[in-house]
Amino acid sequence: MLQLEGKHILVTGASSGMGRVFCQMIAKEGARVSLLARNEDRLKETLALMGGEGHKYYICDLTDEEQLKATVSTLEALDGVVFCAGINDFVPLKFVKQEKLERIFQTNYFSQVILTQMLVKKKLIKRNASLVYISSLSSKLGVAGTLLYASSKAALNSAVRVIATEMAPLGIRANAICPGIVQTEMLGSTNIDEESFTKQAVDYPLGLGTPEDVGNAVLYHLSDGSRWLTGNCMVIDGGYSLK
């Protein structure tokens, strides 16, 4: 039997990287997927890669509250949400600026919370639904240059625990997944070059992760198999934390 048969799942950041792979994997497990991202062409590309039926896409800049409101008003009730939209910016402390902090928190934290708030307020999250937030292993570490990213994800982890408590009476679960380094396009677009990531691969006993590795954790979180799991932050890092 398919793990997500009959479920309706919303995926943010659906047009690229991990989000795109998650959409394909979720569709394969029998769910109907609503894809949310900024770029229509890339959303269409993702859609073309997906099997199954009934998927819809929504063009929306998560950081724009009005767009978000408009999009939420057209959504149907959900059995699960995967919050995958995220940005990265590696700068040393001495180059951190209010503006940079705001930009990264806007996408990685504020918009995640606001979207959750809107969905809950509009009663679009069904009983026993699952909210899955893609966080990062870096939220638990102190890697040089990651202040902006790591702290935005740490804030997200805290929000997830509170959301879990508040939603528990409805059987709705909220969890974060904290992956170590995963090979996606986001890596390519950062100012950290591939070579240094390859160098870091030696610190991963099981090697660097793939979007599919994280996708399998997402499927578990979305499925009824994880019905007793909430407020958790799953580290999935190929053994990096063992050192």
Binding site: V91, F95, A144, N191, I192, D193, E195
Partner: peptide
């Protein structure tokens, strides 16, 4: 070090509004 490299890239962004790529730096 990689940290200095990151700082130089951030300096170039700040002073010249140019975002050089990591492989260009390397």
């Amino acid at each position: 070090s990689s940290m200095i490299a990151l700082s130089v890239m951030a300096m170039i962004d700040e002073e010249y509004d140019v975002q050089i790529k990591a492989d260009e730096m390397r």
